[in-house]
């Protein structure tokens, strides 16, 4: 074991990992985080905390991680390259190490055009692959990007995201290969609805042997309604929702749609567990955290191994 990460420990023991996420509030009320946290107690092995997702200003991922840490969770600090240069990034990584955050998820970040401050200047001093490598260099070599020695290395389990449905599809596994080469130890994927394409992507991942060097956690998001399914299909960049899914949601009465969404999600998890190389599930129930326990239970993912 390189770190004190709960997910690293479970993966090393050959276990199947369950993670979920917690979106910080648009304000300074810590109770929002605690409330969301309480819904995930005993249900997940680690909790992602998003970093100003969709470029909308929220409570920082870092501070929300600390609130969850105090509740006994093993938080995953999401960090995007949109808002920080290499100086701020390395500084935050040191802080995360100091405060006992064990996991980091390295992301490029959504473009600010989508958020509530579209007139902002973006940074993108480094990209997500370079960020992965930055964490690795700090942790394993005890060096800053500038070459100086780190006094007290930050010990974080290194993760990243990958979207198997984005284009150009043919280089998606190669891109994951670059992440693994840079030091990535676990991957959480974009929400999976198109099982056929995901299966194909996993084949490409296995052909390169990447699943043995990096744990693939498959991402799922339950639909609350047919409206949400359509929105995900048409308006969320990089999302692949097959027409069949929309039809299936349409096929049930409005008041039964959320139930159907959960059902689809549970079935998806069951199929994903059968795919060689899938080492865990990442459940992203967007502003629907109260359903994570039910999904995990129905999918046979509970109880979770004791910390």
């Amino acid at each position: 074991m390189k770190t004190k990460s709960n997910i690293e420990r479970i993966l090393e023991s050959g276990g199947f990992v369950v993670t979920s996420e917690c979106g910080p509030p648009r304000g300074a009320d810590p109770e929002v985080i605690r409330k969301k946290g309480n819904l995930l107690k005993g249900v997940v092995d680690a909790v992602n905390v998003t970093d100003n997702q969709t470029s909308v200003v929220r409570m920082s991922s870092f501070s929300s991680c600390i609130i969850l840490k105090e509740m006994g969770f093993d938080p995953i600090l999401q960090m995007v390259c949109r808002d920080r240069n290499r100086i701020a990034i390395q500084s935050d990584i040191l802080g995360a190490g100091a405060l006992g955050i064990n996991n980091i998820l390295c992301l490029s970040g959504d473009h600010q055009k989508f958020g509530d401050h579209p007139k902002a200047k973006n940074v993108f001093d480094i990209d997500s692959i370079q960020l992965i490598n930055t964490v690795k260099i700090l942790r394993d070599d005890g060096k800053f990007l500038g070459g100086e020695e780190v006094k007290g290395k930050p010990v974080l389990f290194i993760g990243a995201a990958e979207n198997p449905f984005a284009d150009p599809f043919e280089i998606r596994a190669a891109r994951l290969g670059k992440k693994v080469k840079a030091g990535c130890e676990f991957i959480q994927t974009q929400c999976i609805y198109n099982m056929e394409k995901f299966t194909k992507w996993m084949e490409m991942v296995r052909d390169r042997g990447l699943h043995e060097r990096c744990a693939i956690l498959a991402g799922v998001t339950p639909f609350k309604s047919v409206g949400m399914a359509k929105y995900m299909k048409n308006s969320v960049p990089g999302m692949d929702v097959p027409d069949g899914m929309i039809e299936r949601m349409k096929g049930v009465a409005k008041e039964k749609q959320s139930e159907e969404g959960i059902k689809i999600c549970v079935e998806t998890i069951q199929k994903l567990r059968e795919i060689p190389g899938v080492r865990g599930i990442h459940i992203m129930a967007i502003e629907w955290e109260e359903k994570v326990a039910e999904i995990a239970q129905s999918a046979g993912l509970l109880p979770r191994p004791q910390v």
Binding site: S108, D110, H111, F114, D127, E162, A166, D167, I171, R175
Partner: peptide
């Protein structure tokens, strides 16, 4: 690339276009 990424396309590249604008080519494509 709208994010000046040096190591490949982000997850928002779709059908050759950039997530920022449907009329904008994805630089990495």
């Amino acid at each position: 690339c709208a994010k000046s990424l040096l190591n490949g396309p982000c997850g928002g590249s779709s059908n050759g276009k950039c997530e920022v604008d449907k009329d904008l080519d994805c630089g990495w494509q």
